[in-house]
Amino acid sequence: MNVVVCVKQIPDPATPGSLDSDNTLKREGKLILDESDSFGVEMALQLVDKAGGGEVTLVSMAPNNEVSGLRTALAMGAHKAILVSDDALAGTDALGTAKVLAKAVERAGDVDLVIAATESTDGYTGTVPPQIAERLGWPSLTYARKVEIGDGKVTIERQTEAGYDVVDASLPAVVSVTAGVVEPRYPSFKGIMAAKNKPVDQVTVGDLGLSPDDVGWKGARQEITKVEPAPARQAGEKIEDDGESFQRIVQYLENLKII
């Protein structure tokens, strides 16, 4: 069984983000594997293992041929990666991303399943997985908190507001997974060493048969017309707990007539 995992390399979310002069997110410097994607990578490794063979291929889109995040996922055990890197990609929106990643999935060859995170940490539109599926003409099973493969089918537990639904479809299909579905493994030293020699197929938008007009600002067909700081919320009272501070909370709730 061959699984493709869509992964995103992002600026470290622990550091404050900033915008470039064209109002896109600054992506200079080292990028890391989006933690949301580590669950998909782990899930793919487990499914291939359970199926008794096959490959896990990563597909990713990043500026400047950035591979540091990909190396993390390769060190976890993914077999190879396709990285789409092209100056034309600056400003690409969710739909453009899906066009690129769907082509990258096709380039990966014989694929049974595509796994993606529900949403990325930095862009979080939450639309890319079904957009990829629609481009491929495949079913999409979204917000999975459990994934099983059997008899040419994928079955998931789909998170809902009220609980979860059991949803299935035949393969090939796209699945988006929520965080916490599996516990991502830490790359071993051996894995980190092996990752250095794993193949990363670096391609351009043109290599995938897409026009530069499909991606970037031109493809996004939207314009950022205003950027302004939000009104700041003021801090109130801060007190050290002296064993009696709970009474302040109770009193606060009383004043609001919550209790």
């Binding site: 929106d93 969710a94 539109t125 629609e134």
Partner: peptide, 22 residues
């Protein structure tokens, strides 16, 4: 929402229109 995102995502590809989200 869960279904809202599924719907807008697939529709955007069918119509080839960008989406603005959140």
């Amino acid at each position: 929402s869960y279904d809202g995102r599924d719907a807008i995502a697939r529709l955007s590809v069918k119509l080839d229109r960008p989406v603005l989200t959140n």
